[in-house]
């Protein structure tokens, strides 16, 4: 009975999040406008080959959109006291976190459709390339959904506080993870730091799928992203479990 009920609870929470949070200002600003203008500022005035632009664009959309919804849920629900309502029901905390992350990842999948279509239109991608890109979007979206979830663990009730924290973490990652400058072209010390970022492996996977030129083999990238996801799931759960009472 329980696994079936847990799935239902996870989907119910995800559906609630989609209805409530997809159209909120911070979601649209940090999830859609930020990657768009970021990318625009990078390409304007430069004549660049689409093949070298698309991997970074897809990675950035995946990263920003997957981390846009999760961080606003917990502070908003803390402030509105709906979180207390949820945790007074027979819904395990991990189901709440899974549901929130599912909503974040789904937002990412929807948003990533645009650069994916763009890639398909500008570059002649093979079936395998498209498939690998979709795999990258799915596992990258799930990984960053939990990354966003972890960012929302501090027990505050103001979305702006969490957005400040996430921005402070997200922006440096953008610059060291090979989005604008390919990993191979980064200075050695930065490249070493880049290995500690999950975004590096997602970006490198898109370089492999779109341009066919990556630092790591796609399987290495997939394994690294899965590893990061498992780590983020565990750390996010422990962090939220620790801070939950302080939210009430």
């Amino acid at each position: 009975m329980f696994p079936k009920l847990w799935f239902r609870q996870i989907f119910t929470i995800a559906l609630k999040d989609m209805r409530v949070y997809y159209t909120k200002g911070p979601t649209l600003i940090f999830g859609l406008l930020f990657p768009f203008f970021f990318f625009l500022s990078f390409i304007v005035g430069r004549s660049m080959d689409p093949t070298s632009l698309i991997p970074g664009l897809i990675a950035m959309v995946v990263f920003f959109s997957a981390t846009a919804v999760g961080p606003i849920i917990f502070p908003t629900e803390t402030r509105a006291y709906t979180l207390e309502r949820l945790i007074s029901m027979p819904v395990p905390l991990w189901c709440i976190l899974m549901g929130d992350s599912l909503a974040s990842a789904t937002f990412c999948f929807i948003s990533s459709f645009v650069p994916l279509v763009l890639a398909f239109a500008l570059i002649e991608l093979s079936f395998i390339q498209v498939g690998l890109t979709i795999v990258g979007i799915i596992i990258g979206g799930i990984c960053f959904a939990f990354f966003g979830q972890l960012m929302s663990a501090p027990p505050v009730d103001q979305t702006s506080t969490i957005m400040m924290i996430t921005t402070m973490v997200k922006f440096p990652l953008i610059f060291i993870s090979g989005i604008f400058i390919p990993l191979a072209a980064l200075p050695e010390i930065v490249r070493f730091i880049a290995l500690l970022s999950p975004l590096t492996y997602v970006t490198d996977l898109f370089w492999a799928s779109v341009a066919g030129a990556s630092v790591f083999h796609p399987f290495v990238n997939i394994a690294a992203i899965v590893g990061w996801t498992v780590l983020l799931v565990v750390v996010s759960f422990l962090a939220h479990k620790k801070t939950l009472e302080k939210r009430l």
């Binding site: 609630k16 209805r19 409530v20 509105a80 006291y81 207390e84 309502r85 007074s88 029901m89």
Partner: peptide, 12 residues
């Protein structure tokens, strides 16, 4: 359980 504040989802 009815918590202290009328905590319904106002967007629903």
């Amino acid at each position: 359980v009815l918590p202290e504040t009328a905590n319904v989802y106002v967007d629903l």
